[in-house]
Design a protein around this nucleic acid. Structure first.
Lengths: 209, 209
DNA sequence: AAAAATTAATTAAACGTTTGTTTAATTTCA
DNA sequence: TGAAATTAAACAAACGTTTAATTAATTTTT
């Protein structure tokens, strides 16, 4: 059962780097150190392997925000802080998977897979939305555009992850700089988004200057 | 010379919808109504066709911000407003091309194409950066994180364009709603980003409530 | 202006590779 | 002994590309 995981993680790596279509089952087999036939033996087909990869990476997570949402002992802006850090942590930890998901979303092949991914990503949206709406209702937040605020939050992180090269160029870093494994960049992004959300959301916000 | 353009626009459409690898030259030929051999006759190869598509769509633009940047008669926040509207207009006008560019950026095939795209996208970044820095220096703006503010700006628009389905689900719209051709959504996004940037950037900002 | 010569555009067919998948035989392990 | 795992080989289909022949358009010559 070890070879199964080998195949899954190799497939994730290659699908993320080169895309689904540009990755051959022979590439995956070679990378995982197994015979080509083993992939169809275990997963049935290349497409089902893709589905298995997505399922493998998404099962068992996503319940992080559920309890946070209902916690009455912290303010809504503090919940937003937590969500920002959690999001950054997760997305930076697996940029390949992030690429894979968003590529499938932007493609018009495999519509059922697209729907499944939307469902997965939307779980987070629901939680954030509830927090924002609660904050607005209680008077802690301004009456902002909830949906587009979520878009800004996720979009900011997402865009930074799009391309290592673009990220390096934007931040004026050299070739040795790996954006996706850099702790300082994550902290910097966290700080930026927290500041941004405070200015954007809080009614009584005194900028530090 | 009319068939050349037919091929180019069909290729753009299909590359954008299905991705480069999943689009066959036969698909393109059929869509453009030409013989398969014409593609290699005109462009040399499938990969050179891709390069031609990118060149075709990017030549002759990109100088919009250059004059804006130096205009001394309007404030920096007004320049940001203009940039927001211009960006939204351009990206919503050609979501397929946007998909194509960002997919190439996230892939590790064709590195030279990746560098070319980074170069193209970076021209806008430079202009926005200059405006932000000028605003900070003059005291109109707070001392925000310039690079990440740009990321937020572009990322917000970009993320909304990722998937029609996700966009519809987020905004609770029905199947007939086409996010990319909806005027009200563009105005709503414009309003959101302008508000966001005012809260984020302006030193003396009085929220409307 | 008509005919001939030359270049460009267009086609159907075939090229060699690579693709995902399957088969049938063999090895491994309980 | 029997089921599961693993293998090398072969499968048809699809891929990007090329060829060689033909038609269309343009230029040159008469």
């Amino acid at each position: 059962m070890d070879k199964r995981k080998n195949i899954l993680s190799t497939a994730l790596q290659l699908f993320g780097q080169k895309g689904y279509e540009a990755t051959s089952v022979r590439d995956i087999a070679a990378g995982a150190g197994v015979n080509i036939a083993m992939i169809n033996y275990y997963f049935g087909s290349k497409e089902k392997l893709l589905e298995s990869v997505v399922e493998y990476k998404t099962s068992g997570i996503q319940l992080v925000f559920a309890e946070l949402e209902k916690n009455p002992s912290i303010t809504q802006i503090e919940k937003i802080d937590t969500i920002i850090d959690n999001y950054i942590q997760r997305m930076f930890a697996g940029p390949q998977f992030h690429h894979l998901l968003h590529r499938e979303l932007s493609l018009e092949n495999r519509p059922q897979m697209k729907d499944a991914i939307i469902e997965i990503l939307f779980r987070n949206v629901v939680s954030i939305k509830a927090i924002l709406e609660k904050g607005i209702e209680s008077g802690e937040f301004k009456a902002v555009d909830v949906e587009l605020t979520i878009t800004t939050l996720i979009g900011s992180i997402s865009y930074l992850l799009t391309s290592e090269g673009m990220c390096r160029k934007l931040l004026k870093k050299n070739k040795e700089f790996n954006p996706f494994q850099n702790k300082k960049l994550k902290e910097r992004l966290s700080e930026h988004l927290k500041q941004l959300m405070r200015s954007h959301l809080l009614i009584n916000h005194k900028p530090i200057k």
